[in-house]
Design a protein around this nucleic acid. Structure first.
Lengths: 144, 144
DNA sequence: CTAATCCCTATTGACTTGATAGGAATTAGG
DNA sequence: CCTAATTCCTATCAAGTCAATAGGGATTAG
């Protein structure tokens, strides 16, 4: 299951992606429109900023906007920031590989083989879905 | 990431599947061979028993054996017992559906669409891999 | 200069995870 | 029938994670 943090992040980003222009939107506005606790959202956006997913503008009339084109921000990118690796085991993670603590011989592990296939399948989906495709879906559904 | 409990469960089950016969194996033997804390394994096997994945034999000369043919126990079955639903969100879970707490309109949710595709991809893999295919891989690798 | 805004660190309560403890219930074998 | 071996059950624990909150510092438009 993804965390609440991930949900909030995706909702906030989708709101930014849905606005055509790139003028900054304030935390409080996002929080209010998406019903996200203000201070929590603040922390989330800060993290997203560190990885370049959003850009911030400080001071009066400040706020947040996407850090790159919506089509270049995949669901996988966002989930990796909020929830860590997509993989079901560190030993099959591409972005954050680590040997399992008590692994006998990785190349022979039957559990690993299954988890690797699962990771590849999930990553393939979550890397192909991005904020642009998601926003387009919303527009098509008449939700915007 | 899967839990430590899931790892232990899979290892224990794989040990049972690898033995051709269905004579019961004692907790202590599994614990020792797979380096799993004995008491923790006890609790895990008990849970697996409740769902029919393993069968137990009490008293002297007791122990555990698979509750059904190895080919009928998928990785998905095991992970569902130890770690809950495979889905990344309750709203896309087939086995344990639940509406997201703050969902506006499910049919329009762009986040849901992506998570649904991800669930289908993962489930497709984890339901096709089972204890028999895994044990066969081990045999082929010469690990048995 | 000042008010609005993002930035940063710390803290909190509830829950989950991994593990341990102790003993009750059951059963094979003598 | 007795006993030793085994599973079954409940309770407990420490450490970690999650979701949220608090307070104030840094920055900037007007």
């Amino acid at each position: 299951m993804i965390s609440q943090k991930a949900r909030y992040a995706l909702r906030a980003l989708l709101l930014l992606a849905a606005r055509g222009d790139s003028t900054p939107v304030q935390i409080s506005e996002i929080a209010q429109k998406e019903k996200i606790p203000r201070k929590f959202l603040e922390a989330i956006l800060l993290e997203l900023k560190k990885t370049g997913i959003v850009r911030s503008h400080r001071g009066r009339q400040g706020g947040y906007s996407l850090g790159k084109p919506a089509k270049d921000i995949s669901f996988a990118d966002v989930l990796r920031v909020t929830d860590g690796p997509l993989a079901l085991s560190p030993c099959v993670s591409v972005m954050a590989y680590r040997k399992c603590d008590d692994c006998f011989e990785e190349s022979v592990c039957a559990i690993r083989k299954a988890l690797l296939a699962a990771r590849d399948a999930t990553a393939q989906i979550l890397e192909s879905r991005n904020l642009a495709t998601a926003a387009a879906q919303l527009r098509r559904s008449g939700a915007l």
